[in-house]
Every structure is written in structure tokens, then in C-alpha cells.
Design a protein around this nucleic acid. Structure first.
Lengths: 112, 112
DNA sequence: ATAAATAATTTTATTTTGTTGAATAAATAG
DNA sequence: CTATTTATTCAACAAAATAAAATTATTTAT
């Protein structure tokens, strides 16, 4: 479990894992994030982010039910660790602080 | 002006440039961001982020006053372009959407 | 039982970002 | 003119992001 900080893309993948709960597996994460970003992502980019975050201790994984209803390889379901939640809050607070310090000339309405 | 997306660190540097306004130059950006992140950064990391964002059209720069009060090389003052503001708002909205979609089990108070 | 279709993950290679540390430059003070 | 201060630039390397292709596993149809 080596430790480095979270990258930009990793952060988005991590947030998506939390949002998707029991449905948080590679292909579905890709779909969800593509729809939010409104542009397409490669499978590999998601998978490598997931793998790295598992190495860093931000995610754990287990294989889904052995006999799903419709064809295909079994899903690898991810979930975020406590540490992941902690670093997400941390970076959120730092960004919020920066936005809150914007000069008045840039009006700054609503949540980040 | 080649175009790629903003990295995580680049985004923080960009936000800091906006916050610092007329004082947005390498060394000062470093100080400000170090204080917000509560850890130290190298000069080069800031400079390379600035240079890359200038190439991407998110920043413009000009040299500061030719005769500063106290010794040293002239400052290179950066400012964010309209496009920079646009992408910042965009990624902010995407993250806000993700946080807003968190399952109820994770209470989610205050702005991001 | 085999082949085709489907659903996923894994692998490999390349480009872009991030990080570090040392070198260089310009201005002022003495 | 030399030392000091304040800054930027450069070069080399590590990590993350992206893309495309390969592989694996399961279901459905014949």
C-alpha cells in the first residue's frame, strides 16, 4: 500500500465509486463518468485509476455474484476506504478555500 | 496553443493565480499554495505547471515593473484567461454533482 | 457440445503531468 | 565590482492519464 496523493482523474473515479455503491465496477463507472463529463473515456483509463487507488489504500474490491443473469465476466466491485473519504474531504476543503478567496470581481455563487 | 485538460495540480495553481491577482508570480504562488496545502512544494513544480497552462491557453503573462524596490529578478505576473475560468467552473460543477449524488449514508454538509 | 454474442477485465505502449534540484539571471547594497 | 537577494529557467526523472488491443468468462442459440 504505497502512498501518493490523488490525481485529478483518480479523484473523479473515486467519487463515482462512492456514488455507484454496489454497482461500482469498471464498465459501469466508465458509463457514469462519461455521462457526467459529457465525453468518452477509455476502459483502460478507468481500470488503471482503480488499480492504482487500490494500491494506495483508497479502494478495496471483491468479485460480484458468481452467477449474474446475463452473460459476461464477473464484475469486480469497488468500495472506498475511510482514508479515501478523508482525502476527498481534505482536497474539497482546500479548493473551497481557494474559491472563497476569489477577488470580488469574480462573483462566486453557489456551492463548488 | 495546444489543448489538453487541466491536471489536478495545475488546477490548484490556476486557482491560486486568480486569488493572488497582481501578485500572481512563481515564488508568491508557491508560498500561497504551500500555506494552503500545508506542505512544501518545489519551485520547478509551480513553474512547469505555469508554463504548461500558458501553452494550453489558460494563462497569459507579462513581466512586472522594471524597477522594483528591493533586489532580484523581475517578476513574471500571470493572469487567467476566460477559457481558464470556463474550465474551472465546468470541473467545479461536475464535482458538485458527484458530491450531491452521494448516498445518504454519507452526510454531506456545507459547500465543496 | 460447440459457436457466437456479450460483458467485463487486463495488458501494453505512448503521451501528458508532476516533482526535484541545480543553474542562471537581474536588481540592489555596500 | 562583489556579495546578497529575489526570481525564473532548465534538465532529468517519476507518476498518472489515455488509447487501443488482447484476454477471460459467462450466456444464448444452434
Amino acid at each position: 500500500m504505497k502512498k501518493t496523493k490523488l490525481g485529478e482523474f483518480e479523484e473523479l473515479v473515486l467519487l463515482t465509486v462512492i456514488v455507484l455503491q454496489e454497482e461500482a465496477y469498471g464498465v459501469e463507472i466508465k458509463r457514469e463518468l462519461e455521462s457526467r463529463l459529457k465525453n468518452s473515456l477509455s476502459v483502460g483509463s478507468i481500470q488503471s485509476a482503480l488499480k492504482r487507488m487500490e494500491d494506495k489504500g483508497y479502494l478495496t474490491s471483491e468479485f460480484g455474484a458468481a452467477t449474474p443473469k446475463r452473460g459476461g465476466k464477473r464484475k469486480k466491485i469497488y468500495s472506498a476506504t475511510q482514508e479515501a473519504h478523508r482525502v476527498l474531504e481534505e482536497i474539497k476543503a482546500i479548493r473551497a478555500g481557494l474559491w472563497a478567496s476569489f477577488p470580488n470581481s469574480f462573483l462566486n455563487l453557489g456551492p463548488i
